[in-house]
């Protein structure tokens, strides 16, 4: 398989996943804010922070108002990680590899991109937002479904799977990071009643609330949620699950030694760390390390498989 094709498939998958996760974040944050008293509600700044786009945001806006933030996250031209920008990038990556993929993928992705673009205005209204975000999430799920049920299990499939799961692990860890460090100030007695709500919203962002309930059979609390989202190997949006899926796909490729070593180290670290007991600052450092490892894995993939011409642009990344 051509390096360019592999790289395009990988980034296509990452961008679709990114668009879906951003839509999930906006959706759940909006609901969370309804439940928190005005004085302590963290508002929308943390969501912008999760996408790592604080700087780009402040260039454009002075106030982290709901409208500014949602607009920025949905379709601002300054934000390359916005839902619409992600879908546009996914589509550009898909365009040159159309012949490798089932026809339905291109069509579904085009449909999703056009839906997101044409309905952006309604996504900005309080009334239309939920339906809009649901549409984006479902569109992404539909593409995953087509891929899973029609794609040959060859290299193309595995590069897509690697992209999707690396992005997902990255996003889950970002969500945890921001939610635990930035969302609420240090735990204080008057905030205790809202702590549960906060963790529930984290679970819901990742469609993990029911799964958590069934698996853990205990009330929603920090310690257990952290372990569930970082270490559970049966919940499809946990970091461990994502990394194991990535590992499984790597095993089908040649020249995978460095990558496998890197992923194994990471999985071991996740399994042997008592994540629930980490204090806030410790947790933040731990997630920082995870993020650095993801960046490293991305670099290793590029070095191992995506040989680029010198001085030339690679896939849209």
């Amino acid at each position: 398989m051509l390096s360019r094709v592999a790289e395009n498939l990988y980034w296509m998958a990452r961008y679709i996943e990114r668009a879906e996760n951003t839509a999930r974040l906006i959706n759940v944050n909006a609901f969370l804010l309804f439940d928190l008293p005005a004085g302590i509600a963290p508002g929308w700044q943390p969501i912008v922070a999760i996408s790592g786009m604080d700087e780009a945001f402040s260039k454009r806006y002075t106030e982290y108002s709901e409208r500014n933030c949602v607009k920025f996250l949905l379709g601002d031209s300054e934000n390359p990680s916005s839902v619409i920008a992600s879908l546009a990038a996914a589509r550009e990556n898909c365009r040159t590899v159309r012949e490798i993929l089932p026809r339905l993928i291109w069509e579904a992705l085009t449909e999703l991109y056009l839906f997101a673009k044409e309905n952006a205005a309604s996504g900005l209204t309080k009334k239309g937002r939920h339906a809009y975000l649901k549409g984006v999430i479902e569109g992404s799920q539909k593409i995953s479904g087509i891929l899973n049920s029609t794609l040959m299990r060859d290299e193309a499939y595995h590069f897509i799977r690697i992209g999707r799961h690396l992005e997902r692990a990255d996003m889950t860890s970002r969500i945890l990071d921001v939610r635990t460090v930035n969302l609420l100030p240090e735990e204080t007695p008057e905030l205790r009643p809202f702590e549960t709500i906060q963790w529930m919203s984290v679970l819901k962002t990742l469609t993990g609330y029911n799964a958590y309930r069934r698996k853990k059979q205990t009330r929603v609390q920090r310690k257990v949620v952290l372990s569930f989202l970082l270490q559970d190997s049966t919940f499809p949006r946990s970091v461990t699950f994502s990394l194991e899926a990535l590992q499984h796909s790597l095993l089908t490729l040649k020249n995978n030694d460095l990558l496998l070593a890197s992923v194994s180290r990471l999985l071991k670290k996740l399994a042997t760390t008592d994540v629930g007991d980490l204090k806030q600052q410790e947790l933040h450092s731990f997630i920082d390390e995870l993020q650095l490892s993801f960046i490293r894995i991305n670099q290793l993939l590029a070095e191992t498989y995506f040989f680029r011409a010198k001085g030339r642009q690679g896939a849209l990344a």
Partner: peptide, 23 residues
């Protein structure tokens, strides 16, 4: 393979190669 210019390169021995995931 359907290649674009950036997928190919010429080495010092004047041989043409394409960049694939396995080198």
């Amino acid at each position: 393979e359907l290649v674009e210019g950036r997928d190919l390169f010429v080495n010092k021995k004047d041989e043409v190669y394409m960049r694939t995931v396995y080198g």
